[in-house]
């Protein structure tokens, strides 16, 4: 469901460097669920995103505390993500990159 960008950008390097990510502070998220579809409204950007289970799970983790890509990859429920550890890590890296591009999360300094 998430628009995973194929093109890499400057911040992939940051992501690889073990940076911790968190939801952008000070703006609410509003959710609406229909089966495996989660509509998320971000009160800052005013954008609406459609996520699946994995997407919403990752986003909620980053809402609770800052996490690195590896930490998110480790905690994601195995029932939704299939593949080798490396594949899952790659998927999470791209997910984080997409969240960043959408203004949902930012690196913690």
């Amino acid at each position: 469901m998430i628009d995973v960008p194929s093109r890499s950008d400057e911040r992939v390097a940051d992501a690889a460097a073990g940076e911790r990510w968190m939801l952008v502070g000070g703006f609410e998220l509003h959710e609406r669920r229909w089966d495996d579809q989660y509509a998320v409204f971000h009160a800052g950007s005013g954008d609406t995103h459609l996520l699946n289970h994995t997407g919403i799970e990752a986003l909620r983790m980053l809402q609770r505390q800052p996490m690195t890509i590896d930490e998110v990859a480790e905690k994601l429920s195995p029932q939704w993500v299939h593949g080798s550890a490396q594949e899952v890590r790659q998927f999470v890296a791209e997910l984080i990159q997409a969240f960043d591009r959408l203004g949902l999360i930012e690196p913690v300094t």
Binding site: M1, W34, D35, T48
Partner: peptide
């Protein structure tokens, strides 16, 4: 049409959603 997709269609076709 799945409701989530319907929502996104409504949003895309709205004049003043934002």
């Amino acid at each position: 049409l799945a409701k989530g997709d319907a929502l996104m269609q409504a949003v895309d076709n709205a004049f003043n959603y934002s």
